[in-house]
Amino acid sequence: MSAPVVFDDVAKWYGEVLGINGVTAQLGPGVTGLLGPNGAGKSTLLKVATGLLRPNRGRVEILGSDPRRDIEIHRRVGFCHDGEDFYDTLSGLDFLRFSLRLNGFGIRQADQLAREALEIVGLADQAHKRVGAYSKGMRQRLKLGQTVAHKPDLILLDEPLAGMDPVGRHRTLELIRQWGEAGCVVVVSSHILHEIDTLTNNIMMLSHGRLLAEGDIHEVRDLLSEHPHQIYIECADPRALSRHLIALEEVQKINFERQRRGIMLETFQPDLLYQQLARVVVEERIEIELMTSPDDNVQAVFDYLTHGRTEESD
């Protein structure tokens, strides 16, 4: 049985401008972050997935169907696209009711689901207000509402946090997490990497229309063998700690962070180093105040990947 979302060597270009090229990936249940800078091809990929764009090459399979041929899959797919245009004369509630009626729901059910969706996205008190009078953040939430009102199995979100205030962002991230935990296939695109960092470890990274990496962020990081892992440690006596650590063969380099009583270690064997570190800390009774891996995150991996690419092209 194939994955819910399959891209097989998918390419799309607009005239001479490349949208995406040679994207091959399979996405399963849970949240997947689709990452890349503006113009990387994220929106193009999502539009190809929903059938709004026709790929020039390759195969797209969504829930077992070709999205350009089988319109019925839209019953099971919700897409929060990047546009901000609505029928401005309609109220938020009416817009959702019409959308649900078009999905085939009866009048009562459409009304019930529309109200539920507005409640979920926090627009219940603005239900009867004209969409034309909605703020950018409210429009974004309404778009999110129409994406999930019909309770789809596959949710595709193109920059869903754009234009939202901090409270709206927090609420939306929480919703996305819940949908993922409920078993939905959720794909969230963003160019703000730390947003995705808090949401999922499962990522797809695009740059210049090409898929740079796909899978668990930590596994992807481990594959970048030319870049040593960084470990930052803060403690009461960083000099004492560094004296013990410098003797370890797993440690490539130690930098002192004078401003913050910390040291930055670099290693190509992070797993072994963590074991040795635990031993040293216990034996020498060193009190660790903070320990982080600053480059074991989406931003760092993305920087490594795109930096390498830039150098190659240079």
Binding site: L52, I71, V77, F79, H81, S99, L102, N103
Partner: peptide, 14 residues
């Protein structure tokens, strides 16, 4: 032109 066609094309309607 109003960029609202997407709301119709994303529904399961022929």
């Amino acid at each position: 032109e109003g960029k609202t066609l997407v709301h119709l094309l994303l529904r399961p309607i022929p």
